[in-house]
Nucleic acid binder design. Sequence first.
DNA 1: GATACTGATGACAGCGCTGTCATGCGTCAA
DNA 2: TTGACGCATGACAGCGCTGTCATCAGTATC
Lengths: 339, 339
Amino acid sequence: MNKSRKITLSEVASAAGVSPITVSRALRDPAKVSPEARARIDEAIRELGYVPNPAARALASGRTDVVGVIIPSVSNNVFGDVTRGIYDALEGSALSVQMGNTRYSPVIEEKLIRVFLSQRPAGLIVAGHDQSPAARAALESAECPVVQLMEVGPAPIDMAVGLSHYDASWAGAAHLLEQGYRAPAFLGAQMDPRSQRRLQAFRDCLAGAGIGIDDPVVTTPEPSSVSLGCRLFADLLSRSPGTDAVLCNNDDIALGVLFEARRRNLRVPQDLGICGFNDLEMMAAAEPAVSSVATDRLEMGRAAIGLIRDRLAGRGQPRGHALDLGFRLMARASTRRGG
Amino acid sequence: MNKSRKITLSEVASAAGVSPITVSRALRDPAKVSPEARARIDEAIRELGYVPNPAARALASGRTDVVGVIIPSVSNNVFGDVTRGIYDALEGSALSVQMGNTRYSPVIEEKLIRVFLSQRPAGLIVAGHDQSPAARAALESAECPVVQLMEVGPAPIDMAVGLSHYDASWAGAAHLLEQGYRAPAFLGAQMDPRSQRRLQAFRDCLAGAGIGIDDPVVTTPEPSSVSLGCRLFADLLSRSPGTDAVLCNNDDIALGVLFEARRRNLRVPQDLGICGFNDLEMMAAAEPAVSSVATDRLEMGRAAIGLIRDRLAGRGQPRGHALDLGFRLMARASTRRGG
DNA sequence: GATACTGATGACAGCGCTGTCATGCGTCAA
DNA sequence: TTGACGCATGACAGCGCTGTCATCAGTATC
């Protein structure tokens, strides 16, 4: 294995006694090369330690094997799971990912989409469906498969995988009411468009049930965390002391509420019902176990890559395909008051 | 903004009335181009919506602006923080990252290192310092800056950022003993080399203190999670009922222990001391707050990129430079027994 | 026996950019 | 005035690979 100098495809070709183009084909589409030639080429590749140069390939073919993934945050637990699903599904393919981090800014998102598209990616995954008009236009004229992730909405640009955050949040709110809670509140951090829709569902659900208390909602644009959950809950109690349940925008917040409730000797679920969102692994392990609206984030990532791979393989879904992964209300001890 | 066809550097050049090479220089090293030419070029770039083609650049120059990051897991909380630090520090630079996921396999790690290096990256970040001899050799002859992340050890291949996991774990164990716990146990998941060293420190510390109980250690190669913490702790209690404290390999586990202890009506810290590792944000928010050995994972990622950027800018650290970020024992209520 | 077709392989050019060397011009010391 | 030097710019070639055609057996069809 010669490591000091770059081995090129031509060197492999002469070692195998074929022309460079045949080696290229053996790599890209083995079926087009005779088994004997293939065997000699494979042997030469192994012997020389040849690794293809992706830059040269991209330049010559005008395509890359890179899937762009544009998400608001690399640190958020939720996107961490999605990312894992993406890497999972990439296993065994020649594709790689290029992450872009919008930091929840539509301007950065638009710029990233433009830059990624200019590199002729094999596919593009973007979080949400709230792109700016210009970004949307760019995605519509993209020559690669595009998947909008996290959320299914009215009109996918190309394909979409996710769930209805409105419906999911509604289910959480309805669950609290069913359990007999009469003064539920909403706690939200990182109020991105999906969180806004979740809040809207909460408000609509309460209004629909004729619960007319004055908007027991505490939100913040800060990124979500457990300690933020503690603070938001403390804030809520000082504003709306009569609160008997909280629907949390996500599980970090819910866990913070659980801890803060314990600190204040509030009994969960008797004095306070808690419902989270996403159903992170720890919610079921908590004491008491915390109810949450489960979303399958791993599967979201996997499915997104699956759609792209299928499309690249020519057997993909048509434009406009939306895959609704749904949600599941995980009713646990933290809301089991009986009602 | 013409979006349908790719704008090339030559088109920008003719629009600006200069030669292509001048545009190239204006992009790569603006100081080498006269201010007037630069202004006209910038104008043309904006007007045409030009975006450079990284593949062509990589092919022509033999370099890329990609930093390879090879980590065991994309989902693990710890690496999530490190990754965030990396993205943080990349902000405002032309560099991008390419993630590689070893899934804790030295074989995959070696392969990834080889593949990444063959693409002439701008830099390479690898987790830990337990590379296989072949991988180590490949890294040693790499032409780019290499940073070993997470851990500082005897002989960095090039540069290293991290901490001594042995020392950090020792501090946790010693803290439990100082607080008067006499039968501490160790709970570990995902027993990678760093975890092994943490376990070793625990054993050595207990032995040093003359505590000769028979190895109260429960470990598993499974990935760590809160519910796994519950199970490991249940397991531990059935094996070593006399346990009065646990040092956890990481915070997920510690949180699981906290929940499981509550489920069993064990009082924390009186009946049971709990100390985690890493000090995830939620530990301080828990009730009772959980002690942990804090590591600055964000800074680790940031510093790694910082070292690479400095080196690329020609003002970097010499080979062999190791940056020890240390650790801090966060003594909280979960171990505050007084002793 | 001539034509059409299939399958394996090759020749050639060029993807968009940058490294290297060359050029032309103005400035300064001798 | 001359030569040396620095600065901005340009010409040329080529990075490693693949798309597009062309070629050439070998087989099938009438």
